[in-house]
Design a protein around this nucleic acid. Sequence first.
DNA 1: ATATAGAGTTAGGTACACCTAATAAACGGA
DNA 2: TCCGTTTATTAGGTGTACCTAACTCTATAT
Lengths: 216, 216
Amino acid sequence: MKADTPRIEEYLESIYKLQQDEHPVTTSRLAEHLKLSAPSVSEMVKKLAQKKLVNHTEKGVCLTQEGNRIAKKVIRRHRLSERLLTDILGFRWDEVHDEACRLEHAISPEMEKHIEESLGNPKTCPHGFPIPDENGVIAKEKLRPLSELKASDKGIIVSVFEEDPKMLQYLATLGLIPEVCVRVEEVAPFGGPLIVCVSGSRYALGREVASKIKVK
Amino acid sequence: MKADTPRIEEYLESIYKLQQDEHPVTTSRLAEHLKLSAPSVSEMVKKLAQKKLVNHTEKGVCLTQEGNRIAKKVIRRHRLSERLLTDILGFRWDEVHDEACRLEHAISPEMEKHIEESLGNPKTCPHGFPIPDENGVIAKEKLRPLSELKASDKGIIVSVFEEDPKMLQYLATLGLIPEVCVRVEEVAPFGGPLIVCVSGSRYALGREVASKIKVK
DNA sequence: ATATAGAGTTAGGTACACCTAATAAACGGA
DNA sequence: TCCGTTTATTAGGTGTACCTAACTCTATAT
């Protein structure tokens, strides 16, 4: 009864991601994220609970210590894969997510180490998210979503939480990528767009997209 | 009914490999190579035949054109993976086979291209076997097994057909790796060992091992 | 207060890839 | 020629992960 077959890894990884925002991780949200039917997820969650990888209460699903450990291991592999793809194999940042989704389940602990060393111990993936160390420890910084800045606030982009290649390409053409400095010029009222200034150019940015961009 | 799920790829790859030597590819040889029971293989071969990926006759299993195409695609990915592992990620040649067995099913056509370019279009894997091009074309050379050389014959090692890490390590310590020149000093009668000379040192080499080393 | 929408689970069923045990067919040696 | 071994297949069964349809809650709106 081994606990880290690809399927299980995918469930734990999804649960981990959905835990990031405040909302509870419900069966239906999980089903949507995994593109599976609700009953399939319901059943699988039961099995994960049996294996002591998640706790399932009225308020939703949450990872146990062990579940968390495995999820972070997978995320470590995902982000290391993304770095390998961009830094060594010459992929663009918008191309790597789907590739990494496949690679993350095919990487041994030894390969993990080798990638890490060959890359010079990178701290983040190409989208700015931290790569957990071998023990699953993640370096934390306190970050704000770009959408919460006020007019004339500025910050340095740390991460871009977006998996859609088209949107990533678009953001890259605007120069909205990690490490770059961004200044908010104007915030339209009633949930309207932000006007931001990036390396001399001004752009309008929807609130929803802006909320996926974290700055420090 | 897609035809290239990991399981199917593994079967086709095994069949391809077993086709290399003269012997017909029987159900039992396949079962042994895949470490599965004979009935499982029997059943799966039937399905592969339905999908028109193999022909199954009295004399054994053989790949159809399409089966061959897929097998070579997988082998291409396997060998490119091995090169990536040794040349870029710093693995030793005896460590890469098992890693590559997992990677080969997780690599997209785009990644294939990127690996190839990053490596400078390598022609062979670390064990000396040719990497098929995108169209599955394999550059052929006429080679002899080391075991068939006579006393005082010499040749340059081209490939080492051995998957066992221990044996690969051992051969590497003797210097029996691709590109190296080897001379046969003596051939013991009745299937006994060969005495070979490699970069100044002399070693006894069993016939079975010697037959896995191809020279030109 | 009750009808109804929504979320979650149960029931029942499919596909897939594997297994063991038993059977059938082929083949080499006494 | 016949027997025993090897080789392949059939029969029957398991576990896993998915599905749809139907049911059961709960919570809200009229």
